[in-house]
Nucleic acid binder design. Structure first.
Lengths: 124, 124
DNA sequence: CCTAGTGTTATATTTTACTATTACACTATA
DNA sequence: TATAGTGTAATAGTAAAATATAACACTAGG
């Protein structure tokens, strides 16, 4: 996996796992790959994986069973809440950034539309 | 100023100064506050300010005159280009993030509209 | 010429993230 | 009960960012 060197790796791992939970790659109750395997997959150290998992365990999004593995919480409500939260955080960030660049609400929306429309030209 | 501890301060300072250039707080040819003054204003060390400025000088967005001060480039074209670049980066980021959360193009646009509409309730 | 204001650079120190390595604790199963 | 697979934790070392502090280089004005 490629990491942004401007942001802590453990933080990006959390985000990576969140996304897998949000998109259904990891479903409620699913067992995560073993920490040592995750470390290999992500080419990072076990302790770094553990740091990410530790925070997620504290938050309650995953549950740890010593000797068995780490499991996605069965609480689907928590997952949908988390997804909503991640979306709002993203929207908040663009809005604030573009607003700070003096764009009006209308300009923010239309620039996003234009960006998405223009994307079709070169991608996917 | 409040910094996000997940991202290098010098990097956030660059961004801060960019915004001032984009919004007209700093106009082409304007003299920036003295580095020691900036350090006080931002409550960081002079070397940290210097690191941010150093990169901007290399990029050509500000010009340094030893003994005189640092000045915003007179090249207005560069500034408008930079603004466009910052906007696209933001749009790219939200789009990629929300797309990764399985939202369709339409859902991305409508969620932004909803967010902006809902903002009026509690803010500004 | 001197001094105050400016940018620039260097050294040493602290803190944080990350790594490497090892050990320990628990579970399942052959 | 031994062993392999799992999570957990501790130690030591490295690197990057930021700090404190000091010195150097240039400019302008008295």
């Amino acid at each position: 996996m490629k990491f942004d060197d401007k942001v802590p790796i453990y933080y990006q791992i959390k985000n990576h796992l969140y996304h897998e939970m949000m998109t259904g790659t990891l479903e409620p109750g699913d067992k995560l790959p073993a920490v040592r395997q995750l470390a290999v997959d992500l080419t990072v150290n076990v302790n770094t994986v553990q740091r990410a998992l530790g925070e997620m365990i504290t938050e309650g999004t995953i549950e740890s069973q010593r000797g068995k593995g780490n499991f996605v919480t069965m609480d689907k409500n928590r997952i949908t809440q988390l997804k909503e939260q991640l979306i709002v955080e993203q929207l908040e960030r663009v809005y604030n950034e573009l607003h700070a660049l003096n764009l009006t609400d209308e300009q923010i929306i239309s620039s996003l539309k234009t960006y998405i429309a223009g994307r079709g030209q070169q991608h996917d």
